[in-house]
Design a protein around this nucleic acid. Sequence first.
DNA 1: TCATATTGCTATTATTTTAATAGCAAAGCT
DNA 2: AGCTTTGCTATTAAAATAATAGCAATATGA
Lengths: 116, 116
Amino acid sequence: MKIPRPGLPVRGSKTGQPIMALLDLLGRSWAMGIIWHLYNGPSTFRGLQDYCESISPNTLNTRIKELRDCNLIKRTMEGYALTEYGEELFELLQPMGPWARNRWTESFKTDDPNSL
Amino acid sequence: MKIPRPGLPVRGSKTGQPIMALLDLLGRSWAMGIIWHLYNGPSTFRGLQDYCESISPNTLNTRIKELRDCNLIKRTMEGYALTEYGEELFELLQPMGPWARNRWTESFKTDDPNSL
DNA sequence: TCATATTGCTATTATTTTAATAGCAAAGCT
DNA sequence: AGCTTTGCTATTAAAATAATAGCAATATGA
């Protein structure tokens, strides 16, 4: 699949708006999970495989390549790690954790249809 | 594909941590794009099709169903719209727009390998 | 009332992604 | 020399998505 880049057309958007390219990139299987995991520290290829319980090496490889090409992760001596950009992005994603745990989970418990 | 739910195992995570379920849901083609678009206001099925330039009706349908089941969007008389939860989630996603435009785009212009 | 348009959707087929599995070369122990 | 770890590639199978056509229900307009 074509690697998205801000400024170039991507899957579903001919304008190349940076946000569309970013959503395309992050909306691929495991992309956000990899970023999420790497915030805990560098991880080897096989460490990532273990974390993403059902990813295939092909897919992981592809995703790694894409994320590297897009400046979000890099190789280090301890394995793959977030770049400074990757860390910034993670910090934007981070609030989703508490929101999912607290608010979103709660939405499944409501029987009041008006609240949706 | 199985619809993710906080507390149940999802693609790639047996623990069912809410964040994993959320990342699974959002990491499907067009899911974030649909949420992004609907923040501008309600949109019909065909309006969404136009927005997602290359989505197929099957996929759009599936995605709509998933997002509805997960309490992020709903049907209204003016078309599909974000629920209160969907709006909250969008607001968490929103900062990615400026970041993509300003910081991320900039990362592609750098020739200094040390900055990555 | 008859045609036309819009909407939400299904069906079918083709293409693209992803998963499952095996395995290999290089490097580092022991 | 044998064993492990690491980062992959190759092959095949399954699943997701796209492309395209089209339908039933409701509205609109002449």
